[in-house]
Design a protein around this nucleic acid. Sequence first.
DNA 1: GATGAATGAGCCTTCATTCAT
DNA 2: GATGAATGAAGGCTCATTCAT
Lengths: 219, 219, 219, 219
Amino acid sequence: MASPTSSMAGAPSGLTRREEAKERRRLELIEATVRSIAKRGFSDTTLADVADIAGLSRGIVNFYFKSKDALFAETLRFLADEYRQAWRKSLAKAGEDPARRLRAMLMVNFEPRIFSRKKIAVWYAFWGEAKSRPAYLAVCEEKDREYREALDACVAAVVDAGKYTLDAMAISRTFDAVTDGFWLDRLTDPHCPPVEEFAAATDLMLSTYFPRHFPRSGA
Amino acid sequence: MASPTSSMAGAPSGLTRREEAKERRRLELIEATVRSIAKRGFSDTTLADVADIAGLSRGIVNFYFKSKDALFAETLRFLADEYRQAWRKSLAKAGEDPARRLRAMLMVNFEPRIFSRKKIAVWYAFWGEAKSRPAYLAVCEEKDREYREALDACVAAVVDAGKYTLDAMAISRTFDAVTDGFWLDRLTDPHCPPVEEFAAATDLMLSTYFPRHFPRSGA
Amino acid sequence: MASPTSSMAGAPSGLTRREEAKERRRLELIEATVRSIAKRGFSDTTLADVADIAGLSRGIVNFYFKSKDALFAETLRFLADEYRQAWRKSLAKAGEDPARRLRAMLMVNFEPRIFSRKKIAVWYAFWGEAKSRPAYLAVCEEKDREYREALDACVAAVVDAGKYTLDAMAISRTFDAVTDGFWLDRLTDPHCPPVEEFAAATDLMLSTYFPRHFPRSGA
Amino acid sequence: MASPTSSMAGAPSGLTRREEAKERRRLELIEATVRSIAKRGFSDTTLADVADIAGLSRGIVNFYFKSKDALFAETLRFLADEYRQAWRKSLAKAGEDPARRLRAMLMVNFEPRIFSRKKIAVWYAFWGEAKSRPAYLAVCEEKDREYREALDACVAAVVDAGKYTLDAMAISRTFDAVTDGFWLDRLTDPHCPPVEEFAAATDLMLSTYFPRHFPRSGA
DNA sequence: GATGAATGAGCCTTCATTCAT
DNA sequence: GATGAATGAAGGCTCATTCAT
């Protein structure tokens, strides 16, 4: 899970320590929620499960969250934030080279913290419910939109730089779809190969679409 | 929904008419289940909803299905059957040409009966729950496996025929992932483009991986 | 409790019998609610209590009433209806004589079905909660208003007939208050005298205010 | 609310200041309880509400009172004490004249501190619950009994003094009932007239029962 | 075959009470 | 003294399932 943003190192003790403890508890409960959804599924996750996994008492969730639905919404938002931070960081590390930036945007989806069966299970659980719950849908859409916009820009940059005569938008949509599909493999395929194969398939795809920017590793 | 495949055309009369009526009712209830899951989501679908949508009485589902879970499992199987029939038929129509067969396997995912928001919602609802329900998982896996095996064969045939020096398995995996990802777009993207764009992106992908077998339409 | 208004004597059997049974159950539950409130008070009455008293299962109330609050509201309305019917009937029986009509309006409050400790307890329970529950308040107000209007008319008729130089409205308000106060005695006074004394005090009050119309019994 | 009767004016300092502070807090909480019951009703009043209204922390009530029930019981006792003090003081001011004393006993019920909608709401809230809670019932009964005994004496004194041939007890009961009924009007009647009309109706009642001791104001 | 009344298990939520700080 | 985090019991409500009609 993301580091709990250690709030204000040198803050005055009294209140802050309590607030820190409270924030830590909230994260514990969100973490327990992720675990429970991954284990029992969305509709079989009860607040009692969450409390048990967190090792706390039954009434605890309604003390920290307004309702079960609020807990779920915040759990989803936590995952969305984590995802956004991951690709932003990855992008920053890639520097200015268009090809490296594009690859960074795709490969982030295979980082251990992201490409975890547990978390993917939660994502799919929410996608399954999102259609009927506007609050979830909004978070999912926002996460997708932001990522897609950044991905669009990266693809366009490579297309421009390489003077490829290709529809950048169509390619961006395709790349985005591939990563979502790989997540689904990871979730449902019992013979799912190790992460390296997904990365290799992604590299193959890049070198197929943009051979001058991504020379074939084997060649 | 798929036509109710009037079970057993030339069966002995007496009982059969009853059995046919029974089968029709079952399909009505499965249809209602699809509608309800698409509308309210998996965890908010009650048997009362299903009965209401089907215009039948409350206790009816437990009369035709052993339990709620059995109804859901059969609904899932219905969708899986429909999907399998669709790609088999599409493959049959494509004849013997490897390129046409491969394209047929991909394009079936955009047929109206398959690429329907309602049904995709149900697929994702089940994927979201599958991890914790072996019965669902088994059906999903079987559907995926059969399709993947057929797709693998098609990709391999094209690779062979074209003497491409490419990893056929990786490509098949990638193609499969793309279609799943496009389904997710269809489900969650509010600005989702018309189906033609997905087909076009697929054609672009084919012509990029296998330029000699799928010449660029614009060229 | 009021007779269950045997719905439509010669109605076609089928549905009506079910509806009758349903109506009977509703009345049983309202009756049980009255008993429970009288026994344990308003805030200690649970749906489990009501179900137990009715000798039915725990989930029954939410099958017949939308919510606990709805059950309480309908219980209150039942009492209000019963009260209205009682004084209207009493008034009808009194004929045209103003004095008899006025006495009828007051004495109805001491009829066994009305002056029952159980029911008075329920009235006071609702009055105690009414201020914060508009739905209850509305019913209480309506019941009071209707009765008061009828009582006002009766007092005014006697004042007119007797050419008393008295403020009819003030007297009506006073008479109404006395009966409410007697109800409270009945509820809270452990040494509460038998109902005849309340009736006697009421007769004394009538003969004091309107000596020519209500000659002293003892004189 | 009644002034907090600064307990023990000339008590030894040390501990006493603490005790005074403690007593003040208790009164603040009782005051907050009255407000909350008047606002939300008996069954919707939580200790959190009381603490919020008092502007104190959540756990405070169980610090000053043994339990929620104890807080309620002491609140009720506070009101009962206030009421007793009011009529005793009123009686003392009335001197020796029987008629003045009787009128004082009745009119005290319309003093602003007593005839307050907020406090009447609380009285009725407790009456509504009293039947099932012996602790409340005891306080209510005691308050009623004391008042009634004093009222009985006053009525008897006037009857004696005036040689009226009337049943003093019946009249006393009637008078007591009227004031309770007027309280209920005050609580529930949305078109409730100003307090003067209640006082006027009471005066009319007195002059009707005891014309020689309470000559008609208009005459 | 079909209905819908009835059941009861299970869940979310509230809240009085306790207790470490 | 005072706070508010934490607990756990209990109640309202939903809903899958059963069964008499």
